[in-house]
Amino acid sequence: MFENISIQALSGLSSGMVLFLVASGMTLIFGALRVANFAHGSFFMIGAYLSYSITQLIGTNNFGFVASLLLVPLVLALLGAGVEFFLLRRIATRAHQYQLILTYALTLIFADMVKMIWGRDNQMVPRPKILDGAVEIFGTPFPTYYLMLIAVGTLVACALHILLARTRFGKILRASVADAEMVGALGINVPRLHTSVFALGAWLAGLGGVLAAPIGSISLGIDSSIIIECFAVVIIGGVGSVTGALIGAILIGVMKAIGILFAPKLAIAFIFIALCGVLIFRPQGLFGGANA
């Protein structure tokens, strides 16, 4: 029984790391720009579909996977920068309701675009051959690809921490969150900073989409499911906290996996039980107020 729980927890940890990649981008955008970006799940979905197209074009081999891993996040970063520059920046001074309506409208537009380009059928991206094996843990085979997801999530978490806590960019970003007008008065181009943060968030969502594509089928609607879990992560971890996003994503991933093992019909409910508990007892989130 212990072996089954451990393997299931590791599986939940791997899915939690994918969720972290997407949610960390969302919490960065929300923390820096104060924009609840409903279109963030669409970036994830587009990333998964682009990964499918690239692997079909180049080949379902190791090179195709690496190419999609490098190219797709960059494409999503450019798309995110365009959304912020041409759309969100124009209504930055208006009430938050305008931003909510705009980003929600983008989800509908992107969903129709995906439907036009890739159709309604579910698509599959095979795992790269180098990661298609398994290792034995407690005598049970565990997919090598899942171990790679855990490793990538850990590396990205460390890189984001260094970026936000140890670099000039991170210091300027934290200062702009505290007082954007003062930062602008010191000669910093705050709008350009916001575009960079939005592009980084979209890059992370695209990376999550590429890594999630070989786990299951790619279909219309995966944007809605991931955005709900991302909001849960942001609320549980605390707005603007990458550390909170990491802990929140791991909690959700492991709880969901363990829930499937013991009570499959209530697995999703465990996430919202945890969410309600945080809202009641610690509404600012587990790491609310943290900058990294």
Rank of each mutant, 00 (worst) to 15 (best):
G41L: 11
L173V: 04
E136Q: 11
M116H: 06
R120T: 09
G187N: 12
L173P: 08
L69T: 07
I188D: 09
A202G: 06
S196Y: 12
K265N: 15
I250L: 13
F85L: 15
A95I: 08
S42Q: 05
F44E: 02
R166D: 08
F281M: 11
G153I: 03
G31I: 08
L33E: 05
Y145E: 05
Y52L: 04
L74K: 00
V210R: 07
F63C: 01
L57N: 07
G221C: 13
D223G: 15
I162Y: 10
A105F: 15
T140I: 09
V152Y: 09
R94A: 14
A180Y: 04
S219E: 01
A134K: 09
N122A: 12
A92W: 07
R127N: 14
S53H: 04
M148F: 14
K115C: 00
A213I: 01
I218Q: 00
D112V: 00
I162F: 09
F43Q: 06
S14E: 04
H161L: 14
L220V: 07
I150H: 06
S53T: 14
L50P: 02
L21W: 10
A202R: 06
I58Y: 14
M124Q: 14
A213R: 04
V72N: 12
G31S: 01
V18P: 06
I7H: 04
V254G: 03
M255H: 08
I236Y: 11
R120P: 08
G244M: 00
A95F: 14
A205W: 00
G80M: 00
L108C: 00
V278Y: 00
F142K: 04
G133L: 01
P141F: 13
W203V: 02
I91T: 04
D132P: 08
L207W: 12
A92L: 14
K129N: 11
A292F: 13
I54D: 04
F231L: 13
M116T: 07
L149H: 03
F20I: 07
N4P: 12
Q123L: 09
V156Y: 08
I268D: 15
V125G: 03
L261R: 06
I109N: 00
A274C: 10
A81V: 08
G119P: 05
L10T: 06
V190K: 05
